[in-house]
């Protein structure tokens, strides 16, 4: 990449928008994942009994079971949200930036 292209991309408002949106979403979703997972770990560390509470009176299943499965599902859902947004929105923007950099 030569300096001219670099300058052109950096000064393109679409690039600023892409960086803003893409990194913004990336960090936001990262934070959500961290909160979910470390929230669980902290619960594990400080209140392990909570997770061992039966799901209903007399049940063997504890609430830790569905919580665990939900955390696994949340990881999948969060990646889905990101990929959808990136495929539909960021890629379009990115394509325009690349095209405009060539001119």
């Amino acid at each position: 990449m030569n300096d001219e292209i670099l300058k052109r991309v950096q000064s393109n408002p679409k690039f600023v928008e892409l960086v803003h949106k893409k990194t913004g979403l990336g960090w936001k979703l990262t934070l959500i994942m961290l909160v979910i997972y470390y929230g669980f770990i902290l619960m594990l560390a400080f209140a392990p009994k909570t997770l061992g509470t039966p799901i209903a009176a007399g049940a063997t299943t504890t609430i830790g079971m569905p919580i665990g499965v939900l955390i696994i599902l949340s990881a999948f859902v969060l990646t889905g949200i990101y990929v959808r947004k990136a495929n539909n929105e960021f890629d379009v923007l990115n394509k325009q930036i690349v095209e405009e950099a060539k001119q």
Binding site: W27, Y37, A75
Partner: peptide
Amino acid sequence: GYDGLIYSMGFLVGWPIILFLVAE
């Protein structure tokens, strides 16, 4: 029992982070 689930959860939750910050 349950401890095994905790372990596998940890193995999985790294993946979203890789996607959001590293992969592309």
